[in-house]
Design a protein around this nucleic acid. Structure first.
Lengths: 191, 191
DNA sequence: CATCAAGTAAACAGATCGGTTACCTCCCGA
DNA sequence: TCGGGAGGTAACCGATCTGTTTACTTGATG
């Protein structure tokens, strides 16, 4: 694993997140990473490959950060499900928060079945799987339904925090999540 | 109101939604609208002005479509709050659904306090106001809290439908919304 | 010291970007 | 009949885009 390659990916993640994909030129990335374009094109055949590498790296990076943060807040399944939104709040409050890189990527590459789109779908699917796992651990009756709902709340909080620039969207989501979670823990049949 | 101008705005909305803002060149828009660049620049001083005009037009167009659709489904406040997600489902299922134009715009112009960003915030604020009005009509105890939660569910459904390409996200959101709504209708004090 | 891989800076290519302009046509009203 | 505004065509501008190439420097290894 080359150091230059990693520097390029890190820089690309930063610039793509902040300015978008089409608006960020490769000259800009190479300059910011202090790497010549020649070296850059030795590591990545095209801009699209650099985008894909950036998305995949961010995928691992973010999910690792997210899961570790959640599991550090509490060891109890119930609390962990709600801790998801505490972690989200901290994420939103970061000065370098420009929304979810994958949502933004789909917004720019929504056409057809591109590899970029698939990378974003993979990320979202893995995040959904993690929430589902937490729901199962919490012992709710229908973990799939609850997990899907909580995932929607999380996505909604992300875009709301991005558009309105307000990290408190995470708190709103957490309150709603608590209602849904408590409801899912009841034994009553669905009426 | 010029016919050419309207044709340009309609074409711009279509192309921007489908391909994004940076990826859509003005030559392309002018060609598709069958309008010369000269005429285009007589109506809009710059690409940014065309983007703003497109966003504002889509704002009115979409909100009108959305509210009329909701109010056509039912006249009862309770049902209308849930009908929001039925309308969303139809929207997602449309073949020309490429996510929320305003969310996508913020993803590309997330930097600073641009007019584009503000136009998107206005749209989202007005949609939130409408949901709040429905919540008030439904007579819940804390309409603000419920409306914020339902708005998050709607946003989450939009991006999930966009990324995963699955209109069923609206159904999941509707089920969660029903739980939240029923909970908000109870008289019990917050515990 | 010779060699070779890896790096840099810089020019370059061809296309496209947003935006402007010169020139022609057409139509409508005085 | 004539003037003027609206619109179209097409060339053009400088800048920037992705991607390639050239010429030079560096550093480690034999």
């Amino acid at each position: 694993m080359s150091l230059k390659r990693q520097e390029l990916i890190d820089t690309a993640i930063h610039l793509f997140s902040q300015h978008g994909f089409h608006a960020t030129g490769i000259d800009w990335i190479a300059d910011a990473a202090k790497v010549s374009k020649k070296t850059m094109y030795q590591h990545f055949r095209s801009k699209e490959e650099l985008i894909l590498a950036a998305l995949r790296h961010q995928d691992g990076l973010f999910r690792n950060f997210f899961m570790k943060s959640v599991e550090q807040i509490s060891s109890q399944p119930y609390a962990r499900l709600l801790a998801v939104f505490d972690v989200a709040r901290d994420w939103f409050a970061d000065e370098s928060f420009y929304g979810c890189m994958f949502i933004n990527a789909v917004g720019e590459y929504s056409h057809g079945d591109t590899a970029i789109r698939r990378a974003c779908q993979d990320f979202k699917a893995q995040m959904a799987d993690y929430i589902l796992k937490l729901a199962r651990d919490a012992g709710v009756k229908q973990p799939e339904a609850l997990a899907h709902s909580l995932a929607l709340l999380l996505e909604g909080a992300i875009v709301t925090a991005q558009v309105a620039g307000d990290a408190k969207a995470a708190d709103t989501a957490k309150q709603a999540a608590k209602v849904l979670l408590d409801n899912a823990l009841l034994d009553k049949p669905p009426g």
